[in-house]
Design a protein around this nucleic acid. Structure first.
Length: 306
RNA sequence: CGCGGGGUAGAGCAGUCUGGCAGCUCGCCGGGCUCAUAACCCGGAGGUCACCGGUUCAAAUCCGGUCCCCGCAA
């Protein structure tokens, strides 16, 4: 039996934690996650996805604001720890508390796309291949020696969320499979080539704004990468319009950013082409499919988005 | 009391500023036309104008309060 503790917060982490719980030869003795966060307009305090899963399985949970002064004595004595999608910095003292270190599941082919948003960033940059890496945690983010990698082909229409979930599952499987060999020192670690490293940061709301001077493919990639958050949006007069569901189109319809309506179909011009809008949301309104939207906003035809 | 938009028929909206017949595009029901149709024509049903109170001869509309939805911000 391999005893371990788990650091993680969001969906990727939840997937990995589930795999660890399911594995008969692994025992998760403690889960460390981020504190409950206020969610939504009503700011309801909500535990993280990982905290919920852990309590369902009666695993003890710690929710420190920071690990900087976290007492090592509170950690159960384990040879190794697992980390996925945690979001807080791990101090060297915590890493050193585990003889075999901490293993991280990171959804990119390191050293490319180190950082917080590897999958959306890869899609945004038009990558068609990515993958998942299992490596040791060291003080520099995502820079530790590699245990294993697994490639993953991105489908042309694949959404970042779906790819992320798929990669989490693959990563979790690889981790569970390799862990016994790692514990037995049977895996040769591969040091990363730092000169090849690239980085990706958290997105902001502004990253979802559409530049109508871009091509259809660029905008579609932005949509695949950033939905549902921060989401694709543009402005009509002074109002924000979220584009919740779009599809690339080939027929050029009017100027860049100009709307054209054909029956129940809505197109917006891009550089050299257009995109088709399937679902959208106007500021202050509920989300609507295009057919419904056009019923109430018949003046939209020919309008200019910016 | 963080900022802003909104609540009108089953859906989406106009009407509110300037008080005076409850409207539009659809959907639904019935009929017609058509080889046929999501097309076209004729007819019909469906409303506590979010809720409570006030002003007025008269309130969806003006005033005060309450609830709910959404966009931002965090």
């Amino acid at each position: 039996m391999i005893h371990t503790i788990f650091f993680g917060t969001n969906l990727v982490a939840k997937t990995v934690l589930q795999a660890l719980i399911n594995a008969p030869n692994i025992s998760v003795d403690l889960v460390i996650t981020q504190p409950d966060k206020p969610v939504g307009r009503k700011q309801i305090m909500t535990p993280t996805a990982v905290a919920e899963l852990a309590s369902q399985h009666n695993i003890p949970v710690e929710k420190p604001e920071t690990l900087k002064d976290f007492p090592i004595t509170k950690l159960p004595s384990c040879q190794v720890a697992i980390l996925a999608d945690y979001g807080l910095i791990i101090p060297q003292t915590i890493i050193d508390a585990f003889p075999k270190g901490i293993l991280n599941v990171h959804p990119s082919l390191l050293p490319e796309y180190r950082g917080a948003t590897p999958v959306p960033s890869a899609i945004l940059h038009g990558e068609t291949t990515t993958g998942v890496t299992i490596m040791q945690v060291e003080k520099r983010m995502d820079a530790g020696p590699i245990l294993a990698t697994q490639k993953y082909e991105l489908a042309p229409d694949e959404m970042a969320q779906d790819a992320l979930l798929a990669l989490a599952k693959i990563g979790a499987n690889v981790l569970v499979e390799k862990l016994p060999a790692y514990m037995a020192d049977e895996i040769a670690l591969q040091v990363q080539d730092d000169t090849e490293a690239t980085f990706c940061n958290q997105f902001t709301r502004e990253d979802g704004r559409i530049d109508w001077g871009k091509t259809t493919q660029e905008i579609y990639n932005q949509y695949r990468a950033l939905s549902p958050w921060p989401g694709l949006w543009t402005t009509w007069d002074t109002k924000r319009v979220k584009l919740l569901k779009i599809r690339p189109a080939t027929n050029k319809q009017g100027n860049n950013g100009q709307v054209s309506i054909e029956g129940d179909t809505m197109y917006i011009g891009t550089a050299g082409g257009s995109i088709q809008i399937l679902e959208l949301q106007l500021e202050g309104k509920n989300a609507m499919d295009v057919k419904t939207f056009v019923k109430g906003f018949r003046q939209i035809d020919g309008e200019q988005f910016s």
